[in-house]
Design a protein around this nucleic acid. Sequence first.
DNA 1: TATGAATGAGGATTCATTCAT
DNA 2: TATGAATGAATCCTCATTCAT
Lengths: 209, 209, 209, 209
Amino acid sequence: MFDKFERLSEEKQKRIINAVIKELANKGYKQASTDIIAKEAVISKGALFNYFNNKKGMFRYVFDYSVMIILEEFYEKIDVSKADVIERYKDAVLIKLELMNEYPDIFNFFTKVTLEDDAEINSIIEEKINEVYKESFAKLFSGLDMNIFKEGIDIQKAINIIIWSLKGYSDQLLLEYKKTKVSLSDIDNEKILNELNEYLELLKKCLYK
Amino acid sequence: MFDKFERLSEEKQKRIINAVIKELANKGYKQASTDIIAKEAVISKGALFNYFNNKKGMFRYVFDYSVMIILEEFYEKIDVSKADVIERYKDAVLIKLELMNEYPDIFNFFTKVTLEDDAEINSIIEEKINEVYKESFAKLFSGLDMNIFKEGIDIQKAINIIIWSLKGYSDQLLLEYKKTKVSLSDIDNEKILNELNEYLELLKKCLYK
Amino acid sequence: MFDKFERLSEEKQKRIINAVIKELANKGYKQASTDIIAKEAVISKGALFNYFNNKKGMFRYVFDYSVMIILEEFYEKIDVSKADVIERYKDAVLIKLELMNEYPDIFNFFTKVTLEDDAEINSIIEEKINEVYKESFAKLFSGLDMNIFKEGIDIQKAINIIIWSLKGYSDQLLLEYKKTKVSLSDIDNEKILNELNEYLELLKKCLYK
Amino acid sequence: MFDKFERLSEEKQKRIINAVIKELANKGYKQASTDIIAKEAVISKGALFNYFNNKKGMFRYVFDYSVMIILEEFYEKIDVSKADVIERYKDAVLIKLELMNEYPDIFNFFTKVTLEDDAEINSIIEEKINEVYKESFAKLFSGLDMNIFKEGIDIQKAINIIIWSLKGYSDQLLLEYKKTKVSLSDIDNEKILNELNEYLELLKKCLYK
DNA sequence: TATGAATGAGGATTCATTCAT
DNA sequence: TATGAATGAATCCTCATTCAT
């Protein structure tokens, strides 16, 4: 399918992929300009269409690539030997924040992607999510110790509350940093970690034996 | 400013507003087509520009309108005499779900609007949010009984966990209905209310005296 | 033809005519906006088209009107008893400058009109010029004493040189005032009259006995 | 700036430039249609905007081009060794008439251009005039013998009368040819030259020693 | 007779995609 | 294989003219 592209030197592939992701992250699919992408990648517009056939193909390629990159890095970093639910999810959230810092364009791209209105683009996205979902879900849940919860508590509900709280906290964090236009890398980690831990201690006191 | 528009028959105003909101909800600001809006509203393109001067004006008008509609309905429905934090927020979420059911296009429009690229559009949005925020915030918090929480619990953190959990639950609900393409109005209300109450009972047991 | 218009009160006719001339003077025929004219005249756009049928009719009416006004004023002011060619033409130029000061919009309108590209508009203009030309030409030449020129001089050529010099001088004057954005009414008359007289003395010395 | 355009074949450049000048000469800036220009030049509308970015850029390019062409031809033809004022200006006028015959669209364009309403267009024009004025002025005046005038004559005034007379004569000529719709190239040169010389002899007899 | 809302063709500009070189 | 010029449909917006009230 994209063998023409993959026969290019790795350096050129990276340059092109980064240019595509950057423009998609900035503008979303429809408003992304192939002209700007070609310029940013320092290749001709014709080449872009040779490699990916059309804009949709280009999207499909870099979306698959982006998902792959993030999952690989995530799997590498997550410690599946921790049995404590809260600690495992806390790690997951912190890794996500780290990765957002390392690959900001990819995450902006993912955010933009959630609201695309093109039917074909949406099916590409959905397809990928279905493909990836089960595997990563299993990874996140494997080997957790469910006996840690208090008697009489609905474990699935408790886990959801934990996940939603962590998501709520990190979303709030990102909103603040977006508002103040401070990069994630400028985060005062200690203060945030402390605050996060306080939330998690509260949840532990509530939910754990 | 928009007096030409407001001199139209109410029926026509509604038809136009709905057409604009629908297109904005589907495509976002930049990709929304004034051509399609005019066709959907069964008016000429020229008329659209007579009423709103330009696309930005059109956006401004229906955005203000949408915010007003939703807030009015919300204020009418929310019961500010309930002092129980969880019950108050549960009501807020249920009202939001009801309104999403009643005005699905407006909520899709609001969702799309969060990711607009256009600087002027963003400032229109921000301006409105600033105008509206304090008032509605006060409404949601006024008269709450904060003594209900267990001793030693950080009240702000507890409230955040409640809010995030409610948001998490309703987001999950919406995702499910979006996936199965079932309208919110087809919700089996009893089942959902039961499930929601279970979550809230869990939180009460954890956080309340 | 335009009886509907002419049945209006004189005050209203004036208001409308002035609005039309002003817009035509500013923008030329094609770019003149009937909307702006209606607003300036404080009448409805529909009325404008009732009075003049269409934009062309409107043009025809105010062009005829403008030519009539200027000619009437000119004939009233020109002293046909002066037999001296140079003095007669000097008067004509000075009267023209006076009228430009009194009716600046009309003269700007006339200037714009010379470069219209609409075929029908051009034929309206040409028609009027042909109608008016002979009469005013006769007025300007009647009763001149041609014996004043030196023997052996081609009188028609001498007259042309006089006319062209006067035109050159007044054009230069207008250009200066346009450049410095000073209104004609702010002209330092004495200085200009002196300079003009010096030109005319030179011509008299050359051409007269 | 316009390198994309200048990389085209000379034939295509000419075709496009001529189409642009023709439309601008006919309609003026605002009313000129890029659609018609593209059709006349037998290129796509998109191409036009690739070459010149926008309508203003297109104007700027062909205006600069036109000024350059005319000045080059003029400088090539004017004989600066003639010291006689009248002969020098006579040459200038004859060259102008020749060039009007050779490049009628350019001169119509220049005429239209004097009455443009658009502020940016006017500043482009003024800028160019300022750039070109001094140089061409110097060319026209350099090496003239001012001792040829009679004693007691104001030389500047005499020169102005010469210039205005020449301008008057050539304007009259052009008006006649415009009226009879005869092209300048059909001019009976001998008759005109004789008449022009008679005017100039009259001026010489008046003004020269 | 007067109004001004409605129309729709026409205007400048953009951009994914093609294709000759 | 790589290039980038060329295309033309689609975009927002304007305005003379019409016509129901």
